[in-house]
């Protein structure tokens, strides 16, 4: 009997594949949000596992803030090509130009402006479902979200009246204009993701590994020196050996000093880590409920 037993990673994998196939079976026009980050890299492998030898039956969508790490976009484009998938990129830049997104006076961050850009893309392609790589262990508001997360016709999440989600029976029914966000990796932890990357021998963008980089000290963390917010003369700049743990925009992604050069090194580092991965994202620290507020407004 003991042969018929799944370990935790196999269990998470079959759960995620089941969800991917439910999406393919239930929705007319689903898309998969692919950023090139570690979570969405796992999503792509799970999509291959769910749908091969057929084509992956959903296009990849990425909202490009214009503040991405260049390494990330290069990786994103190449990986989509290798998989023979259709990649749709929609730029915050263009949404601003078309008047769909309006920066507040002095607003540099593109975090908030991703939302109208995403919603416009959903409307343009009439997507009824977007698969995302969010995990519940990332953040307190995400920890509350369903696998199938219903959004109203404004793209809003209402945390106080989520649909019950019982067993593995997902209610995928929508009225026109409404939308579903689906998170197959909900139950995965950062450690599970890296163990899966190791098991599946998945390639990840180089910035996850240790490299030399000029960093500027801001808000108690090291951020990459960049052209969008160049260092002021008063700010401390140093060249350090760093890597990213979670990828956001280049102006807000904290770098951790690390010698980790391989996936094994990273796994060992996380096992001993004393801060969470979101601990290195300035955008989530803004307030206790920063993520909840963004999700209510239509964020991933």
């Amino acid at each position: 009997m003991s042969n018929y037993h799944l370990d935790h990673l196999q269990y998470l994998e079959t759960e995620a594949i089941h969800i991917m196939r439910e999406v393919a079976g239930e929705f007319e026009r689903p898309a998969l949000l692919f950023s090139g980050g570690k979570d969405s890299i796992c999503l792509l492998r799970l999509a291959e596992k769910a749908f091969r030898p057929a084509e992956i039956p959903l296009p990849f969508l990425n909202v490009d803030t214009g503040h991405h790490f260049p390494e990330l976009n290069e990786f994103r484009d190449r990986r989509a090509r290798e998989l023979g998938g259709k990649l749709i990129v929609r730029k915050v830049e263009d949404a601003i130009a078309r008047g769909l997104a309006q920066p507040a006076p002095g607003e540099v961050s593109r975090n908030r402006l991703q939302i109208p850009t995403l919603l416009a893309a959903i409307e343009e392609f009439r997507f009824d479902c977007c698969i995302g790589g969010a995990r519940r262990d990332e953040e307190k508001a995400r920890a509350k979200e369903r696998f199938f997360s219903y959004r109203d016709s404004f793209g809003q999440w209402d945390p106080k009246s989520q649909r019950p989600e019982i067993w593995n029976l997902y209610n995928a029914r929508l009225n026109p204009g409404e939308n579903m966000r689906v998170f197959p990796l909900s139950n995965w932890t950062e450690m599970d993701v890296w163990e899966y990357i190791r098991q599946e021998k998945l390639e990840v963008p180089s910035i996850y590994f240790s490299h030399r980089r000029h960093c500027v000290r801001r808000q108690g963390q090291w951020l990459p020196v960049n052209d969008i917010q160049p260092p002021k003369p008063t700010e401390e700049v140093r060249e350090l050996t760093v890597r990213v743990r979670t990828i956001g925009d280049i102006i807000s992604t904290g770098l951790v000093e690390s010698p980790a050069a391989t996936v094994d090194d990273i796994i060992a580092e996380i096992a001993a880590a004393r801060v969470t991965e979101r601990g290195s994202r300035a955008d989530d620290k803004a307030s206790e409920a920063a993520m909840e507020d963004r999700k209510k407004a239509g964020y991933f």
């Binding site: 307190k140 509350k144 945390p159 989520q162 206790e288 409920a289 909840e292």
Partner: peptide, 15 residues
Amino acid sequence: GLRAEREQGITIDVA
């Protein structure tokens, strides 16, 4: 983790 939960000191949805 929700604002309304911390406000009222109760749990509203599963975490």
